[in-house]
């Protein structure tokens, strides 16, 4: 217990404490002024908004991928299973450069989108694309083991009792795996909020339009404004914490309900 606590303190609590202490050099109103600056607000809106959209997209895409891996047997299934983890292994800068090359106006997909008048790279949409990419494995890996555990006999029973395919999925399977989906979404969201490397290449970084909150932190550091940077970091930490806490509560409630 003591060892665990010491390690936890060294690795997690002390750095976080430093982040919590630093901003107050500016004073309460200084921190408030930093966080309510319209550029910071715009960056928060983009970072958290894009992370939420990306996590929601990951929920759908991740469920489909996990479903395919668990429920179907097809050639290349093991390969697909291994590919899922690649976004984890790839340095985020590499992911960012690759995505930008593909979605830039002269890239294969970017050119396609440009023809129908949609700007992908260098716009908020590009941010969502990058965040969806890096978040996908979290949902797949959270859902996959739970889906494997779902009792097929219960589904069979539902079928013999006359349930349609839709009813089986929505009333039987989904309630069982929903907590896992939410867990994965929470992880994808948390990762996406703080993501810098992969986003910075594709975002365009225009103030008030496509500037993410982590970039604002870098900008403040670049001006040797350590306290201001820490204030933005603290703001992100608080919002993330509240969002993850809410997600956790829903997850716990769902788990209890499905057991009870």
């Amino acid at each position: 217990m003591a060892i665990t606590l010491t390690w936890l303190s060294l690795i997690v609590l002390i750095p976080l404490a430093a982040l919590v202490i630093k901003p107050w050099e500016l004073g309460l109103d200084g921190v408030w002024r930093t966080l309510t600056d319209d550029r910071v607000v715009a960056a928060f809106r983009l970072s958290f908004g894009a992370a939420a959209i990306a996590a929601a997209a990951d929920a759908v895409l991740g469920l489909i991928v996990a479903w395919a891996i668990v429920r179907y047997s097809f050639p290349g299934r093991r390969l697909l299973d291994a590919l899922v983890d690649l976004p984890f292994a790839l340095p985020t800068a590499v992911a960012g450069i690759a995505l930008t090359a593909i979605y830039a106006p002269n890239g294969p997909l970017g050119a396609l989108f440009a023809q129908v008048g949609i700007k992908t790279a260098y716009s908020p949409l590009g941010v969502v694309l990058a965040l969806t990419f890096i978040g996908l494995p979290f949902v797949v890996r959270a859902v996959q083991p739970v889906l494997e555990e779902v009792d097929r006999e219960v589904e069979e029973a539902a079928r013999t009792l006359g349930a349609t395919d839709y009813q089986r999925i929505v009333r039987v399977v989904l309630p069982a795996i929903l907590p896992a989906i939410l867990g994965g979404v929470g992880l994808a969201f948390a990762r996406a909020v703080g993501e810098y490397g992969s986003v910075i290449f594709i975002a365009g970084n225009l103030p008030m339009v496509s500037e993410i909150a982590p970039l604002l932190i870098i900008i403040k550091l670049e001006q040797f404004d350590y306290a201001g940077a820490a204030a933005v970091g603290l703001g992100m930490l608080v919002i993330s914490f509240v969002a993850l806490l809410a997600l956790n509560l829903v997850q716990t409630w769902l788990t209890r309900r499905s057991r009870g």
């Binding site: 260098y122 290449f201 970084n205």
Partner: peptide
């Protein structure tokens, strides 16, 4: 007229 602001000159 600047559509993208990269963080460094090489970018």
């Amino acid at each position: 007229h600047v559509p993208i602001l990269d963080t460094g000159a090489r970018g």
